[in-house]
Design a protein around this nucleic acid. Sequence first.
DNA 1: TTGACAAATCGAAACGTTTCGATTATAATA
DNA 2: TATTATAATCGAAACGTTTCGATTTGTCAA
Lengths: 346, 346
Amino acid sequence: MKRFEKKATIKDIARMGGVSISTVSCALNDSPKVRPEKRDLIQSIARQLNYVPHDLARGLVTGNSRTIGLNIGIGDNPYLVKISDKIIHIARENGYGVLTSIWQDDESRKKDLNMFIQKSLNGIISGPIFGGYDSTLENIYNNHSIPMVMIGNSEYMKIPQIGVDFRKAIFLVTEHLIKLGHKEIGYLCMPQTAADWLGGFKDSLLEYSVKYFPEWCIEGLGTLKEGYDKMKLLLKSASPLPSAFVCHNDLCACGALRALNEAGLKVPLDMSLTGVDNIEAGMYCTPSLTTVNLKEEDFAIQVFNQLKKQIEFTADHKMMNLPNILIEPELIVRESTSPYKGRKTK
Amino acid sequence: MKRFEKKATIKDIARMGGVSISTVSCALNDSPKVRPEKRDLIQSIARQLNYVPHDLARGLVTGNSRTIGLNIGIGDNPYLVKISDKIIHIARENGYGVLTSIWQDDESRKKDLNMFIQKSLNGIISGPIFGGYDSTLENIYNNHSIPMVMIGNSEYMKIPQIGVDFRKAIFLVTEHLIKLGHKEIGYLCMPQTAADWLGGFKDSLLEYSVKYFPEWCIEGLGTLKEGYDKMKLLLKSASPLPSAFVCHNDLCACGALRALNEAGLKVPLDMSLTGVDNIEAGMYCTPSLTTVNLKEEDFAIQVFNQLKKQIEFTADHKMMNLPNILIEPELIVRESTSPYKGRKTK
DNA sequence: TTGACAAATCGAAACGTTTCGATTATAATA
DNA sequence: TATTATAATCGAAACGTTTCGATTTGTCAA
């Protein structure tokens, strides 16, 4: 076939092979109803004509687009990039195309989800949503019979969820610092979800009877810039400084590290520092980051599997109740934390 | 509409409104052929029934899926992630969904491209391909009448390309180092595309009459791990060391930086280091990286625009010859390079 | 040879739209 | 009021498949 020639259809094959359209369809789908010799003949004609099945037509009649939608807010975080990457990969291995949308605000998110509905996707993966209630997503879920899983976790939402036990993650790093002898610990926490993760932080302090200093608990997004900016702010205002600092992810920890370096402070000598996510950058920065492994590969697999289950259930017109899943975090100790050796004054 | 109810179609609206199917179609598409009052009535019925247009059906008849395919090998590189992110964003603003595939090897790549063809996409973006000849892509381009742009550049390929003048990029950083007085410069270069980029390196040396040391020209992929591993190797083998080192991207420069740190060498005092890409991690590591800005935003816009042009041309059955585009790189000097102060011996 | 039964093939409807030519309703003109 | 011209609406075909019930072909036993 040359450029600008019209595509061959099942009809062309039928004409050429002197058989009916339905026979061609069966033959191409390897149905046992068609005689092997005829099947081979038809398939060879198809090959000869450079035939490519027309998924739109097929989808229209079967009601199956063999495509899922991934609607994710990566916000520059390599952890979410990895998860997306992996999901796309697994989906492809399972024969699904992945329509991807990356949202930055709620409005674009809504538009994208509506587009997803129009395209009769087999299912939707959306996230991350940590805590709170997202009406956009829940409306889509309730108003359309479409399989969906949500990345994140929120007790207020009825959509099947795959999340990470962030509370536990924060607990782990905090506990680690406390066990190293630190007693003055700061925390850079997410604005929206402060409550739950902050809970992990406080739990840990409480369990080991360490005092909580609200003035060292700063809100900031999980980006390099925010980690840098907020740490700089802390360095300007606080003296003496906390001897250890918990960042809510590796990315902002790297930013904070930069701010500390600029101020001439050594990590971990002058201040221990921890992240969460176990991104590659945290392994190769100096000092390498103590962090929490959130097993992105496992995560992605679980996400896809839950969606697949739902797709199958829905196809069978069965109702199902999928349990929410929480990925268990795992502490990884590296160079950015060390035993307490006193606090630094500016 | 409740879960598991069948979706409303244009037919339902027609019945309910006591009009014909075609009138409904026109009304929903805001055609001037239908009387305003009737239009509003129909649209309100549509809203009431929670009607969502069926893109598969629409695509089947119009031959337009309003979807493009993005087939990209990001290989962990944040620069390519940014470009993808941006492309997806722009495409959405232009009303296109984006079917995404992330390839790691040529086989999965081929499979994904074939899926793209089946889905009757409006166009395909594929890359990156630097140098050499990729038969998979060119076959798809030649055998199917589908608009396509390629990310990268290769003189052997006939597909419209958007690339970066990497030769120039490498030239710029090398020149910068030479102007700082460095005369013994190493280079971590891409394996496949060594020829062209290496050309930029050699050009620069030649122009300023600086000697080329092939033993310091190491091949390695553009990942953190490779940067780290290869720099470690260099540190083990060479003494005295080069006083400056050019990495073919920021990511492997960060890896190399880590290796230098581990060996107790200070950047830039003991060795100047440069990257390419201007990723965020290079801004926030210590020392921050001297690099080359490849203007990913601009890049993404150009990619989409070229594809769009092609889509429009193809729709009009016009032939067109799009010129290849090369993004002009721009040197960014930061902390990782400093004037020559002698070489380090192990 | 005929009849019966299974296997292979076929025809037609259906999926949900768009679109174009035909038809009908409306308004303007004679 | 009759005639036209124009605007609004409609009917039907088409897009490329799948699928199911109907029909034909083939095989074997009587």
